[in-house]
Design a protein around this nucleic acid. Structure first.
Length: 426
RNA sequence: GGGCGGUUACUCAAGCGGUCAACGAGGGCAGACUGUAAAUCUGCUGGCUUAGCCUUCGGAGGUUCGAAUCCCCCACCGCCCA
């Protein structure tokens, strides 16, 4: 495996925002242990979380040992960093379930065998055992409130009158600092990584390690990932892009990357693929020379989808896209049709309803997610935005048995990308 | 406790007795153009059995032939005085 210098590797990929002094020299020795934390606020991770996950994956490929820290305990509280308002508290059963869901994703990104096997730990293991008095006595005394209130994440919330900051949230940084100190002792972990909003928390941890163990810790943060238009990365028309197939299908996942803009595709390749520098630069050059080919976007979509969902799902996503966008839907064979419709929202209709004159498309559209009301359905039909099995539909179109493909399904489309399957029941 | 100003559709924001389903901007959606892009242009953006009808302008009453617009009460927000 390639054991290139970790810090240099991240640098050329543009994934380094800040590091503490001496990190590069520290990482020159192989076998270092580093961690990144994840809040179990959902049973899956989003592409936003993928930034930190990739830091760990690259770390391991550079010959170091990654630790994933699930915030099973801190997730009960919520990090105030970057949040404008108080977090909802999660209940313990939910957190447990979420931790299990996220664990599955890390198993795809990290190698859990070998000398630098990745480890997943849950900070509930050590934080829940601690008593309040113990925390105040052993940890709290090492923190200066004077210093804590000057942290941006805290100061912003103190200034805003409406929001305020609860004592609970205020204490979050103490707990996160303790995580680092605990991992230092228990796992020899010397490095913490995260997004740029975590820098303050990381420094607190390094400080605590010095006080509790007279040891030296290091930190590294990645820049915040924003889209070129300044909006938050990782949202698509249909909401957040998740890393589990149950929440975001591999097809949609693949489409998400494929739709990356020309300006940001180079950056995304650097961040989210393991392609080497020469490969990425060649892809960028190809993209620039012939934009409509979208060579860079295609390579990005395939690589990212393969990493998360596997090669088989890449092939499925591509054949589905080919069929849906080529428009020649009637030509699909039954098996491929099934593949294509697998991910789509669907409605079941009785076969008998399609007999004779059939059902008015206008009526039916309003019952699907494609149109919110009959009024809207009428607008879409009038604008020529709706197609049945890839062919544009007229306003008074009827759906009949003739429209059913392979005796099973009718494919409706609104606009360019909104699809809906109409499945025929008995 | 007292005085003043506000509360309008997804957001901001006009309207100040009929011509108001409500100007405008943003956002969203659709069409054309394209590369399943960006930019641009056009249309739509409460609902319906759509030349019309129905339900909306913080909540409840009232005045009027007629109210988002006037009056009264209530709730919430902002500013000023104590």
């Amino acid at each position: 495996m390639n054991q290139s210098d970790f810090v240099a590797e991240l640098s050329w990929r543009g994934m380094v925002h800040q590091t503490t002094e001496g990190l590069a020299a520290h990482m020159a020795t192989l076998g270092r242990v580093a961690y990144a934390g994840f809040d179990p606020t959902a049973d899956s991770l989003t592409v936003g979380n993928l930034v930190s996950a990739m830091l760990l994956a690259r770390l391991q490929r550079c010959g170091h040992k990654p630790i994933v820290v699930m915030g099973g305990a801190t997730g009960l509280i919520g990090d105030p960093s970057g949040k404008s308002s108080e977090r909802q508290l999660l209940d313990p059963a939910q957190v447990k379930k979420n931790v299990a869901g996220q664990r599955k994703i890390f198993e795809k990104l990290l190698d859990f065998t070998g000398p630098n096997a990745a480890v997943i730990v849950d900070n509930a293991e050590w934080l829940l055992k601690m008593g309040y008095i113990e925390v105040l006595r052993d940890i709290g005394k090492h923190f200066s409130v004077n210093q804590m209130v000057t942290r941006d994440s805290v100061a912003n919330r103190l200034e805003s009158r409406e929001q305020g900051l609860s004592y609970t949230e205020f204490s979050y940084m103490i707990l996160q600092a303790y995580d680092f100190a605990h991992l230092f002792k228990a796992h020899g972990c010397t490095v913490q990584m995260g997004g740029s909003d975590q820098y303050g928390n990381i420094l607190s941890g390094i400080d605590l390690i010095r006080r509790l163990s007279q040891g030296e810790g290091f930190g590294l943060t990645a820049p915040l990932l924003l889209k070129s238009d300044g909006t938050k990365f990782g949202k698509s028309e249909s909401g957040n892009v998740w890393l589990s197939a149950e929440r975001t299908s591999p097809y949609r996942f693949h489409q998400f990357w494929l739709n990356a803009s020309d300006e940001e595709v180079g950056k995304l390749l650097r961040w989210f693929t393991f392609f080497d520098r020469a490969t990425i630069e060649a892809l960028e050059a190809a993209q620039k020379a012939n934009p409509s080919e979208r060579a860079a976007q295609k390579a990005l979509a395939d690589a990212a989808t393969e990493m998360i969902h596997g090669a088989a799902e890449v092939a499925r996503a591509k054949s589905a896209a080919l069929a849906l966008f080529s428009g020649d839907i009637r030509a699909l064979d039954a098996a491929l049709l099934d593949e294509v419709t697998h991910d789509l929202t669907s409605t079941v209709i009785a076969a008998s309803a399609l007999d004779g004159d059939g059902v008015a498309l206008l009526e039916f559209l309003a019952t699907t997610p494609l149109a919110a009301s009959k009024r809207e359905a009428r607008d879409f039909l009038a604008a020529g935005a709706v197609s049945v099995n890839g062919e544009k539909a007229v306003t008074d179109a009827k759906l009949t048995r003739k429209d059913v493909l392979h005796g099973a399904v009718i494919l409706l489309r609104r606009g360019k990308k909104q699809w809906h399957a109409l499945r025929v029941g008995n």
